[in-house]
Write a protein that binds this DNA or RNA. Structure first.
Length: 434
RNA sequence: GGAGGGAUGCCAGAGCGGACGAAUGGAACGGUCUUGAAAACCGUCGAGCCCCUCGCGGGUUCCGUGGGUUCGAAUCCCACUCCCUCCGCCA
């Protein structure tokens, strides 16, 4: 969430930032008004409390001195003050809750570096890597759902039988290929030869409500997540959720920053309202595999360097897989609610004939960390500071698998396995044609 | 799921209605001593919010969480959460 003091001291700048992403500004005005009320009430309440505290102290002293009558008089006085204080206190609590509730629904301010624009079409292509989409041959122009069926490596029919529409199932070479890709990504992050080591985490995939609030997935996107009502737990839509909340309510030592984590998990999304859109094959499903990179930073400079580091790692993987991809700089209006700046990576899938979003690399400034209350402290210095958070996928696997299957399909119907993955697959070079 | 024990500052740990934001010890930081270090000694040593005549300033809140009793709660009462031990069940 945004810093209330910033909203208070620079309301126009905040308004302008939110307007860039086309956000509703009514909540902001409401907050400003409630905040004014709250501060008036709080000041008065604190004054009364101060009086109650002094009077109570006097009561004690008078009793000790044996001056019972005087003590009784003061006691009555203090009670009256206390009653007023209680009423004000209730009002203050209510105002505070209202403000927080509104604050949670206000999206982050876009980075000034994020391009202008309100729609997807306004996103800027930063660069494209690999062969041009027009250069692929006919044998690569087969959608992965057909390849999957042909090779017996994707069995959507049975997944649907077991779990319903928009679930997928990998079999045989498909399942092994997926596992090899995941392993490759995790191991690359653990390899010191490739730069800073990202600590591998295997987090829970069922989390508490407050954990979902921390990253900004609740309350706004309640419809998107599966909720296990009996135990009041939510299935995570991304490992970003548990990773970002790992340090919730903690004060990190500045010397430990940046802290880098990676996690492989299943991700669950209800995809409410997306029925029928891009749902064929591996394009969109309720449960999918993803490896996430997530880092805590001490501020903007460190955070942006980490965002670039995540992007480089994700790109590297796509390069190793021999895929064509492009990097999009999301315009202010297309940014997710918690993000300040996002780079999407889209891999080209020749069979589907589309660029598929396989990764999203975002810098959240202190928006998530303020929600989750993640702070850092420099030993010996006074006070604490809110962290910055960064995360990105490396990768969202189903679409990456799709792009790999289509890109590496051979004229004989087999699929060439990228070299980096071969050692993980018994040194096989191809998924054999049927 | 059942029975018992517990939750206090960075850590350990006292306090069980007023003098407690909290003893004591350790850690950390600054200093004295020393060629340097250790030891010893002295000092500092939590966070949030609000106000202002912005000063090494004032007020307030926080002893697991939420309620209650009281003039006054870390201390009493209630509920909940989490942790530990034992039993049951289970991959």
């Amino acid at each position: 969430m945004l810093d209330l003091r910033r909203i208070r001291s620079q309301p126009d700048a905040v308004r302008a930032g939110l307007a860039r992403r086309g956000a509703d500004l009514a909540g902001l005005d409401q907050i400003l008004e409630l905040d004014g009320d709250l501060r008036a009430v709080t000041t008065e309440r604190d004054d009364l409390r101060a009086k109650v505290n002094t009077v109570s102290k006097q009561v004690g002293e008078l009793f000790k001195a044996g001056q019972r009558d005087e003590a009784e008089v003061l006691k009555g006085e203090s009670k009256a003050l206390g009653d007023r204080e209680k009423a004000l206190s209730t009002t203050a609590d209510e105002l505070d809750a209202q403000i927080r509730e509104s604050l949670l629904r206000i999206p982050n301010l876009p980075s000034p570096d994020a391009p202008d624009g309100l729609h997807e079409d306004d996103n800027v292509v930063l660069r494209t890597h690999g062969p041009d989409p027009s250069s692929f041959s006919d044998h690569q122009r087969v959608p992965h759902w057909d390849i999957g069926t042909e090779l017996g490596i994707i069995d959507s029919e049975r997944a649907v039988k077991i779990s319903g529409s928009m679930f997928t199932m990998y079999r045989g070479w498909g399942a092994r290929l997926l596992r090899a890709m995941i392993g490759h990504s995790l191991d690359a992050s653990a390899d010191p030869a490739l730069g800073a080591v990202w600590e591998e985490i295997r987090p829970p995939t069922l989390v508490k409500t407050e954990t979902m609030v921390g990253t900004g997935h609740l309350p706004k996107f309640e419809e998107e997540a599966y909720h296990v009502e009996r135990d009041d737990l939510w299935t995570i839509p991304t490992a970003e959720v548990p990773l970002t909340s790992m340090a919730a309510d903690e004060v990190l030592d500045h010397d430990d920053l940046p802290m880098r984590f990676t996690a492989y998990t299943s991700c669950f999304r209800r995809e409410a309202g997306a029925a029928g859109r891009d749902t064929r094959g591996l394009l969109r499903s309720h449960e999918f595999d993803k490896v996430e990179l997530m880092a805590y930073a001490d501020g903007e400079e460190m955070a942006i360097a980490l965002q670039e580091e995540v992007l480089a790692r994700s790109e590297r993987i796509l390069q190793e897989f021999g895929l064509s991809y492009r990097i999009l700089d999301l315009c202010a209006g297309d940014l997710g609610g918690s993000a300040a700046r996002t780079w999407d990576i889209e891999a080209y899938a020749p069979g589907v004939g589309e660029w598929l979003e396989v990764s999203s690399v975002s810098w959240f400034a202190d928006y998530q960390a303020r929600r989750a209350n993640v702070r850092w402290k420099q030993a010996g210095e006074k006070g604490t500071n809110i962290c910055h958070t960064v995360n990105g996928s490396a990768m969202g696997w189903p679409r990456t698998v799709a792009a790999v299957l289509e890109t590496h399909r051979q004229p004989d119907g087999s699929v060439a396995i990228p070299e980096v993955l071969q050692p993980r697959l018994g040194c096989a070079t191809h998924i054999p044609a049927p």
